[in-house]
Structure formats: C-alpha cells, structure tokens
Simulated assay, not measured.
Amino acid sequence: MPRSNRPRRPRGDRRVDDVEEPVGLDRLMSGWKRTELRRGREYAVQPVSAASAQKEYVCPGCGGAVLPGAAHVVVWRTDGVLGDAADLASRRHWHTHCWRTA
C-alpha cells in the first residue's frame, strides 16, 4: 500500500507539543531585555513590539519620530553615577536601526 503524504489532522489544529520555542538570536530579539556595552558604558536595551508601541517619541539617534505601532527599543544606562532611579528616568526610545548604528 502506498504511503499517504497528507496530514492526518486538519490544518490549524495544533497541539501543545507542536509549538516551537524560539532559540538563539530569535529568542533574544523577541522582547527579552539585554545589556550592551558601548564606548565603555553599560546600557540596558528593551525591545518594544509594534503591538505594544502606543505613544509617539523622538528618537535621539536621528531626531525623527518613533510612531505608535512601530517596533523599537528603549535604552537606558545601567552604570550611571546618580543611581538606578536616575538611569531609568533618563531612558530613551530609539528606532532599532538608529540604536544599532549609534
């Protein structure tokens, strides 16, 4: 009897064990806060998804608007001399491309 190449369950019927978890760089870029070292300073970088972007901000990299609905990153220093509260208060919203090229 020949082998059937058709799926045994209907399309869209996914089981819990069929869900794949992102690994490596995909997992890192899907909303996980990370720490980056730039020019001898340490920064916390938090990606913001397009669905979570609700307000308009000014990107310090290009001076353009980071529009609502646009995926971007929020960046703040983690090694400032004024403490964690001041570092968090000075966080800025960057276009992802602007932050990568800064």
Rank of each mutant, 00 (worst) to 15 (best):
M1T: 13
P2S: 08
P2A: 08
R3T: 08
S4C: 11
P7A: 03
R9Y: 09
P10W: 05
G12R: 02
R14G: 12
R14F: 15
R14I: 10
R15P: 07
R15W: 12
R15V: 09
V16T: 12
D17M: 11
D17Y: 15
D18R: 06
D18N: 09
E21R: 13
V23L: 08
V23K: 09
V23N: 05
G24S: 08
L25M: 09
D26M: 07
D26F: 07
R27W: 12
M29N: 15
M29A: 15
S30C: 13
W32I: 14
K33Q: 13
K33L: 10
R34A: 11
E36M: 07
E36N: 02
R38F: 04
R39M: 15
R41N: 10
R41F: 11
E42S: 11
E42Y: 04
E42H: 04
Y43Q: 06
Y43E: 04
V45P: 06
V45Y: 05
V45L: 05
V45I: 05
Q46I: 03
Q46V: 04
P47Y: 04
P47D: 04
P47V: 03
V48N: 01
V48T: 04
S49N: 05
S49R: 02
A51L: 08
A51V: 12
S52N: 15
S52P: 00
A53K: 05
A53E: 07
A53Y: 00
E56I: 03
Y57V: 02
Y57F: 11
V58R: 05
V58H: 04
P60D: 01
P60L: 02
G61I: 01
C62Y: 03
C62Q: 04
G63I: 02
V66T: 03
G69Y: 00
A71C: 08
A71I: 03
A71T: 06
H72A: 01
V73R: 02
V73F: 06
V74H: 06
W76K: 02
R77G: 07
R77Q: 10
T78C: 07
T78P: 00
D79F: 06
D79V: 12
G80A: 12
V81I: 09
L82D: 14
L82S: 13
L82G: 09
D84N: 05
A85K: 09
A86E: 10
D87E: 10
L88D: 10
R91Q: 10
R91I: 02
R92Q: 01
H93F: 01
H93I: 01
W94I: 05
W94P: 00
W94G: 00
W94C: 01
W94R: 01
H95N: 07
H95P: 03
T96H: 14
T96I: 08
H97Q: 12
C98W: 00
R100W: 14
R100T: 13
T101V: 13
